[in-house]
Amino acid sequence: MEALTAIVIGVLTAASVYLMLARNFMRFLFGLVLLSNAVNLTIFASGRMTKGAPALVPYGEDAPLGVVGNALPQALVLTAIVIGFGLLAFTLALAFEGYRRMNSVDTDEMRFAEPKEDTTK
């Protein structure tokens, strides 16, 4: 299970790097989404995986009995997902507004804060 997760994380990261190298800002954003999911999986996997043992406390006990899944990374991932969701929503709105004002999603053409690159070469 760990090996499979590791491969999935690797594939997600590779795909996200490929997407993020593009000049199109939307592709960059999709890459960012993939990368953030890869990171979430990393956190999840680093808490070790326990199959079919939810962290539940039986009635009348103070602590779960026997070996149960690690609940902490799940809480961390949940926090990271919520935060990531908010940030990506903001970034998407920013990209849309940028597209409306600058009429482009090509980062080479979006050069209003910095001097334009010399393209005559």
């Binding site: 993020m20 800002f25 960059f28 960012l32 990368l35 953030s36 890869a38 990171v39 990393t42 956190i43 996997a45 680093s46 808490g47 070790r48 902490l72 990374p73 961390l76 990271a80 940030l87 903001f90 970034t91 920013l94 990209a95 507004e97 940028g98 004002r101 600058m102 980062t107 979006m110 050069r111 209003f112 804060a113 910095e114």
Partner: peptide
């Protein structure tokens, strides 16, 4: 401002993700 914002947001988000995966691995 929008142009500056897009670049600022993009690079800072990537750095945050590097930081976050560092946290995950350190916890592991």
């Amino acid at each position: 401002r929008l142009d500056a914002g897009i670049k600022y947001v993009a690079l800072n988000l990537v750095s945050t993700l590097v930081f976050l995966s560092g946290i995950g691995l350190l916890y592991g």
